[in-house]
C-alpha cells in the first residue's frame, strides 16, 4: 500500500544514518581533511600522533558539530511547534518576535555600549561573549514573557501571531535607529552577529549548549497530543477535551525557550526552523506529532550539519556565513513543498 520509501520503519533509520554520516563528514572534512579512523581515535579520547589534527578537531570541528546538532534540533522542533500552533506553513521560530527581541538586546550591548562608554564589546574577549549571550537571552525572554502575557489575556491564536510579528517590526526599527547613530566598527560587529555562526563556542560550552537544547527538544514530545488536537482547530481541540489556553501557553513557552537559547549562542539562524518541519512531514506521511517531533529532531540536526559542511567546503580557505547557506538550502525546500501542496489541494 504505502511505497517503501514512505514507511516509518525504513525512513527513520535512513534519516538517522544520514545524520551519522553528516556528523562524521563535519568532523573529517574541511580545509584540512582528517581520515575517519583518526577522527574516531581523537573523539573517543584515544589520542592521536598528529597534534595538528587533534587541535583542529577538539578546538574547532567538534564544538562546531555539537553546536550545529543542538541548534538544528532545537530550531526544527520550534518551527514545527509554531507551524502547528498557527496552522500556517510559513510560520517558523521567528514569528513570535523572539529572535527580534534577541537582536534588540544584542543591539543595545554592541551598538549603545560603544557610544556610551567609548569601547567595542568585541575587544573584551570572553566577557564580551558573555555580555552578548546575556543581552540576547534578556531580549528574547522579555519578548517571550510579553507574548505569554498577551496569549493569556487575549487568547485567540491569530492575535498572538499578529502581535509577535509586530514586535519583530518594532525591534527591527529600534535596531535601525541604534545602527544609524553607531560607530562603523560596532555596526560591523552587529552585522556579523546577525549572520549567525555555529563556531563561537569552546568544547565545554558546546556540551552545555547541547544539553540545554536537546533536552527541551525531547520534552516537546510530551506536547505531541496537544499539538495533534491543536492541528484540528481550536473548537475541535476543545471539544476533544484539550485545555486550549494552557496548551497554547506550553507550546509557546517550549518553542520560545528553544529559539531564545539558539539565538543567544549562535545568532539568529534563519530558514532551518521554517524548512525542517516541511521535511519532517514529507518523511513520515503522518499528522501524529509524536513521530513528527522525532523527525524534526533528526532532520533539523542533519540540515544544520549539512549547512555547516557546505559553509566550509574543502578547498575554500575561509567560511561562508551560515545564514547564507541555510537560505540556499531552506528556500528551495519551502518553495517545493508549497508547490506540491498547491497541486494537492486543487
Amino acid at each position: 500500500m504505502i511505497p517503501i520509501f514512505q514507511r516509518k520503519s525504513v525512513l527513520i533509520p535512513l534519516s538517522l544514518g544520514i545524520l551519522l554520516i553528516l556528523t562524521a563528514l563535519n568532523l573529517a572534512m574541511g580545509s584540512v581533511n582528517i581520515p575517519i579512523a583518526g577522527v574516531v581515535d581523537i573523539v573517543t579520547g584515544k589520542g592521536s600522533s598528529n597534534v595538528i589534527w587533534e587541535n583542529i578537531l577538539l578546538r574547532t570541528r567538534l564544538p562546531q558539530t555539537i553546536v550545529a546538532l543542538g541548534a538544528g534540533m532545537a530550531l526544527g522542533v520550534a518551527g514545527l511547534l509554531m507551524q502547528t500552533l498557527f496552522r500556517n506553513p510559513l510560520a517558523g521560530p521567528s514569528v513570535l518576535g523572539i529572535s527580534s527581541g534577541s537582536s534588540l538586546g544584542v543591539g543595545f550591548v554592541l551598538l549603545v555600549a560603544g557610544q556610551v562608554w567609548g569601547f567595542s564589546f568585541s575587544r573584551l574577549g570572553i566577557w564580551g561573549d558573555l555580555a552578548i549571550i546575556t543581552a540576547s537571552l534578556g531580549g528574547a525572554f522579555a519578548v517571550l514573557a510579553l507574548i505569554l502575557f498577551i496569549s493569556h489575556k487575549i487568547g485567540g491564536t491569530l492575535s498572538v501571531l499578529i502581535i509577535g510579528v509586530m514586535i519583530g517590526y518594532l525591534s527591527n526599527s529600534v535596531v535601525g535607529v541604534l545602527k544609524f547613530y553607531s560607530m562603523e566598527e560596532d555596526v560591523h560587529n552587529y552585522v556579523i552577529w546577525g549572520l549567525g555562526s555555529f563556531s563561537r563556542m569552546s568544547v565545554d560550552r558546546a556540551y552545555l549548549f547541547a544539553m540545554i537544547t536537546i533536552v527541551p527538544s525531547l520534552l516537546a514530545l510530551f506536547l505531541s497530543k496537544s499539538l495533534n488536537l491543536m492541528a484540528l482547530g481550536d473548537r475541535y481541540a476543545s471539544n476533544l477535551g484539550l485545555k486550549i489556553k494552557r496548551a497554547r501557553l506550553l507550546i509557546i513557552l517550549c518553542a520560545g525557550t528553544l529559539t531564545a537559547i539558539v539565538t543567544a549562542f549562535c545568532g539568529p539562524i534563519i530558514f532551518i526552523g521554517m524548512a525542517v518541519p516541511h521535511l519532517a512531514k514529507l518523511v513520515s506521511r503522518t499528522s501524529n506529532h509524536l513521530y513528527l517531533i522525532c523527525n524534526a529532531c533528526i532532520l533539523g540536526a542533519a540540515t544544520a550539519l549539512l549547512c555547516n559542511l557546505l559553509a566550509r567546503l574543502p578547498g575554500m580557505e575561509s567560511e561562508l556565513p551560515i545564514n547564507s547557506v541555510t537560505a540556499f538550502i531552506g528556500a528551495p525546500v519551502v518553495i517545493s513543498v508549497i508547490w506540491k501542496k498547491r497541486k494537492e489541494n486543487f
Binding site: 495533534n228 492541528a231 482547530g233 473548537r235 503522518t286 499528522s287
Partner: peptide, 20 residues
C-alpha cells in the same frame, strides 16, 4: 469549518476522537 490538517489520514483523524 473546513480544517486542513497537514498529512492527516482518515484513520488518524478518527483516532483523535479517542483523545478524551
Amino acid at each position: 469549518d473546513r480544517v486542513v490538517v497537514p498529512n492527516a489520514n482518515v484513520q488518524e483523524l478518527v483516532g483523535y476522537g479517542r483523545s478524551p
